[in-house]
Amino acid sequence: MIPWTVLDTAPLPDGSGTLRLKQRGSEFSIMLGSNELMNSRLSGSEEALAKLVCDRLGPRPGLKMLIGGLGMGFTLRAALACLPTDATAEVAELIPAVVTWARGPMEALFAGSLDDPRVVLNVADVAAVIGAGKQRYDAILLDVDNGPEGLTVAGNDQLYAARGLHEAKAALRPGGIMAVWSSGPDHGFTRRLRGAGFAVEEVTVRARRTGGGARHVIWLARAP
């Protein structure tokens, strides 16, 4: 068995912990403490986050998508595969080191996606980006925690609370969709989405692209 090598570390902006980028052969892992936030072998549900949204939105001229969390680029690459040429995929990544890793040791995983002319990459808090956008987006995709609570940064709790959900709805164009990735179900979050005025669909997807692995959950919340 090839041992893991820690390639780099990055403190969280609020000082609550440290991310570690690890490599074993061609496999990458990003860890926060004992929690593995992502692994390059498990891309299925992150890709589904974008595909499910594209399927439900259908064609829209000048479609604008906001992706919260760069990660290992799986959601971004899946989005680019289904978005039209006149679309924009805006990515908000809070931690600068994740962008550095994407252009450095994990460059092969991104397969040139960061250089796609449709991509706008910002080092920014996605909550602030959402709050500043009024009917700006056709879709908002969130994969910044392991579920609808602030794991990576405690301040992310606001994204999933009633106020954050109302701000997300305000940032969406009519009929737009907010999609949220989670490692498991959360019935309270489903209720909060409905309470904020969204029409909610909850989809179970598998971690592996081939259909195996853990069962993850994606909420698809459509604005009026």
Rank of each mutant, 00 (worst) to 15 (best):
M1H: 11
I2W: 14
W4V: 05
D8Q: 08
D14S: 08
L21C: 08
L21W: 04
K22N: 10
S26M: 11
E27R: 15
M31F: 05
L32H: 01
N39F: 15
R41M: 14
K51N: 11
L52V: 07
G58L: 10
P61Q: 15
G62N: 12
L63C: 15
I67V: 14
G71Y: 05
F74L: 07
F74A: 11
L80T: 04
C82I: 04
P84T: 02
D86A: 08
D86Y: 04
D86G: 05
A87C: 11
E90Q: 13
A92V: 06
P96I: 02
A97L: 09
A97F: 08
A111N: 11
D116V: 08
P117L: 11
N122A: 15
V123K: 08
A124L: 15
A127G: 15
A128T: 09
G131E: 13
G133W: 05
Y137V: 02
D138T: 03
D138G: 06
A139N: 01
I140D: 07
I140N: 10
L142S: 03
L142E: 02
T152Q: 07
V153H: 09
G155N: 02
R163M: 02
G164N: 00
E167K: 07
E167P: 00
A168W: 02
A170S: 09
P174F: 02
G175A: 07
G176L: 03
P185H: 04
R194W: 00
E201Y: 11
A207C: 07
G211H: 14
G213V: 10
I218K: 07
R222Y: 06
